[in-house]
């Protein structure tokens, strides 16, 4: 449950389904918007992760 990637996919799935149902009526249009949102979020997340890969992560911040 705590896999970063799984949670990102789950979040993109929920948001994609929600907005495709909210903003589109036809089934074809809904699927198209869903794929745009889902792939945009997951692909964008992977792209940002890839861009950040060379940078060191450093020690975790202390919890107040």
């Amino acid at each position: 449950m705590l896999s970063h990637f799984l949670l990102m996919v789950l979040y993109a799935l929920l948001v994609g389904l929600f907005f495709s149902l909210l903003w589109r009526r036809g089934r074809r249009e809904q699927v198209k918007l869903f794929l745009q949102i889902f792939l945009g979020m997951v692909g964008g997340g992977l792209l940002v992760a890839w861009l950040m890969y060379p940078f060191p992560s450093g020690p975790p911040a202390p919890i107040p």
Partner: peptide
């Protein structure tokens, strides 16, 4: 469908 989606987000948030 909206009920399921919102409650799913809520339950996942609580589970985490």
């Amino acid at each position: 469908a909206f009920l399921v989606l919102v409650i799913a987000a809520l339950l996942i948030g609580c589970r985490l």
